[in-house]
């Protein structure tokens, strides 16, 4: 078994209104920053032991499907890295 960290990023689907991101963008603009758009996302870092990176990714993918993301609202991606020894 190898120790991995799976990073699961959950984003609102394109086209789904994101009031928190809109509010954050307005606040940045009030501070004088120039930006054309801003999106928010939730990121989960999951430490887990698995036989392979693929097996770790598969388990993290199932976590996203079953709990971390809501398919009506979200897309997600999973990136797996071996933990530094």
């Amino acid at each position: 078994m190898t120790a991995y960290t799976a990073t699961v990023t959950v984003r609102l689907k394109r086209g789904v209104l994101d009031p928190e991101a809109d509010t954050t963008q307005k606040a940045l603009e009030r501070l004088g920053f120039e930006l054309s758009d801003l999106r928010s996302a939730d990121q989960f870092e999951v430490d887990l032991d698995a036989e392979s990176a693929d097996a770790a990714a598969e388990r993290a993918d199932e976590m996203a499907e079953r709990l971390l993301a809501n398919p009506t609202l979200h897309d997600y991606d999973v990136v797996v890295e071996e933990q530094a020894k």
Binding site: V16, L17, D18, P19, E20, D22, N70, T72, L73
Partner: peptide
């Protein structure tokens, strides 16, 4: 039920 409830438009 289908669909989802999420953050109000007003935030």
């Amino acid at each position: 039920t289908p669909g989802a409830f999420t953050t109000n438009r007003s935030a």
